[in-house]
Write a protein that binds this DNA or RNA. Structure first.
Length: 200
DNA sequence: GGAGCGATGTCCT
DNA sequence: GGACATCGCTCCG
């Protein structure tokens, strides 16, 4: 029996990213795509802070690009990187205080056929090709800056949100963040230990 | 299976 | 002009 999905509320995100990050593991990322529902269980995220975190986009201060990170909690910050890929984040902390969480990997639960199509690859038994890594994950869920940046992820009217399906709290392993040059030693990456969809 | 590298948009100096 | 919170393709073992 599957419990009803409960969308995470602004108060969930209105906390330090170091608290929000581990709590997001095991939650469900949901995309409504026409008549289809795409769902994945979150297994890897990273926290990005404010001025005290040189790796964070917010560390340089508020700009047009990163403004969502400085806004109210629970909004999508989507940026384009390396000329090829989008990455999805959610803003944390109250309006005016920057911080967020980068979604790095999910385990596909539903809508895999649509995900393969959005990724532009042939269907294969290895679902890790769909959603392992932030760029792949964004592609599989059809996430772009144009479509999703600034979107409220706490609204039931949104086509993109994060929900709790009542699963027990996940085990959490904390490691250094990966794929960055600055502040590479800060322990701000949260993963489900042993999960095959975790990147790196 | 792992190291090396090109692709390529956007922001910042 | 350079950096960049990445990925997929080579080539080599």
């Amino acid at each position: 029996m599957k419990s009803a999905l409960r969308i995470l509320t602004p108060s969930f995100y209105d906390r330090d990213p170091r608290l929000v990050g581990p709590d997001l593991l095991g939650k469900i990322l949901v995309r409504r795509e026409e008549r289809k529902l795409l769902m994945g269980r979150i297994v890897e995220v990273e926290a990005y802070l404010g001025s005290e975190d040189p790796a964070a986009h917010a560390s340089v201060g508020k700009t047009a690009r990163n403004a969502v990170l400085f806004g109210p909690p629970g909004y999508a910050y989507v940026y384009f990187i390396y000329g090829n890929h989008y990455c999805l984040n959610v803003s944390c902390l109250p309006d005016g205080v920057p911080g967020g969480i980068l979604f790095r990997a999910v385990e596909p639960i539903q809508g895999m056929k649509a995900m393969f199509k959005l990724r532009g690859i042939d269907e294969s038994p290895d679902l890790r090709r769909l959603t392992r890594g932030p760029g792949r994950l964004a592609a599989a869920f059809g996430i772009t800056r144009q479509r999703d940046n600034g979107k409220d992820l706490t609204s039931s009217r949104s086509d993109l949100y994060i929900a709790d399906d009542g699963a027990p709290a996940s085990q959490v392993l904390i490691t250094k963040r990966i794929g960055i040059k600055k502040a590479a030693d800060m322990p701000l990456r949260y993963i489900v230990p042993g999960n095959r969809f975790v990147s790196g």
